[in-house]
Measured scan of single mutants.
Amino acid sequence: AQASVVANQLIPINTRLTLVMMRSEVVTPVGIPAEDIPALVSMQVNRAVPLGTTLMPDMVKGYA
C-alpha cells in the first residue's frame, strides 16, 4: 500500500516543514506520497495541521 505523509506534531499555520514534523504512514484517504517528504522540507503549510493529520496537496503552499 502507498504510504502518505502524516503530521508528527501540531504544525502551526505558515510553518516551514522540517523532517521531524513528518512521518510516513499507510492511511485512507491517501495524501501526499511519502517519497515526496524530501521535497516538502522548507515548504509552508497554509493551515494548522493537527498531530496525526494526513497532509493533502492543498495544505502545502507551492506543492500542488
Score class of each variant (00 low, 15 high):
A39M: 15
I11Q: 01
M59L: 05
A39Y: 13
P29R: 03
V26W: 06
G52H: 12
L17H: 01
T18E: 10
A48Q: 14
A48V: 14
R47P: 02
A7S: 11
P57Y: 06
V41N: 06
M59R: 03
V5Q: 01
V6I: 14
L55C: 02
M56F: 10
M22A: 01
A34M: 12
R47G: 10
S42Y: 08
Q9G: 07
D58K: 04
G52T: 02
I13G: 14
N8S: 08
V41A: 10
P29L: 05
P12T: 06
L10Y: 15
I32R: 00
K61A: 12
Y63D: 04
D58P: 08
Q44A: 15
M22G: 01
A64F: 03
V60T: 02
G31K: 00
V41T: 10
S42E: 11
M43L: 14
V27D: 02
P38E: 10
K61D: 11
P38H: 15
A1S: 09
V20Y: 11
D58C: 11
V41R: 07
L17F: 02
T54Q: 03
Y63W: 15
R47Y: 14
Y63G: 05
S24I: 08
V49E: 02
G31C: 03
Y63H: 06
A39K: 14
V26Y: 06
V5H: 01
T53G: 11
R23G: 09
L51G: 10
P33G: 07
V27I: 08
V5W: 02
G52Q: 03
P50K: 07
A48D: 15
V49L: 10
T28V: 08
V6M: 10
A64Y: 03
V49P: 01
M59N: 08
L51N: 15
P38T: 09
Y63I: 04
I11M: 05
V26L: 13
A1P: 11
V60M: 04
T28F: 09
R47H: 09
I11W: 02
S24A: 14
E35T: 12
I13Q: 12
Q2L: 13
V49H: 01
G31E: 02
D58H: 09
D36W: 09
G31M: 01
L40Y: 02
P50M: 14
N8P: 02
M56A: 06
P33V: 15
R47M: 14
I37V: 11
R23H: 08
S42F: 11
A1T: 09
R23K: 15
R16H: 15
T15K: 05
G52D: 13
Q2K: 06
I11P: 00
L40C: 03
E25G: 09
V5L: 03
P38K: 12
S24H: 09
V26T: 09
Q44L: 07
Y63R: 06
M59E: 03
T28G: 05
Q9F: 13
L40M: 10
E35I: 09
L40P: 00
V6W: 00
V20N: 12
I13Y: 10
P50C: 08
G52P: 00
V41H: 05
D36T: 14
N14T: 06
Q2N: 13
P12S: 11
V60C: 03
I11A: 00
M21S: 05
L51K: 13
L10M: 12
T18Q: 12
M21K: 03
I32W: 03
R23Y: 06
V26K: 04
V20W: 13
A48S: 15
Q9E: 12
I37Y: 03
P33E: 07
M56T: 12
A34E: 10
V49Q: 02
P12D: 09
N8G: 13
R23C: 05
N8R: 08
A48P: 11
I11H: 01
L55I: 14
G52K: 04
P12W: 04
P57K: 06
M21E: 02
N14C: 07
S24F: 10
N14R: 06
V49G: 01
I32D: 01
G62S: 06
V49N: 01
G62M: 09
A7I: 06
V5P: 00
P50Y: 08
L10S: 11
V45F: 00
L51I: 12
V30R: 03
I37H: 03
G52M: 09
R16M: 15
P33Q: 08
K61Y: 07
N46T: 15
G62H: 07
D58G: 13
A39D: 05
N46D: 12
A3C: 14
N8H: 11
T28H: 12
Q9D: 08
L10W: 07
A34P: 06
V41K: 05
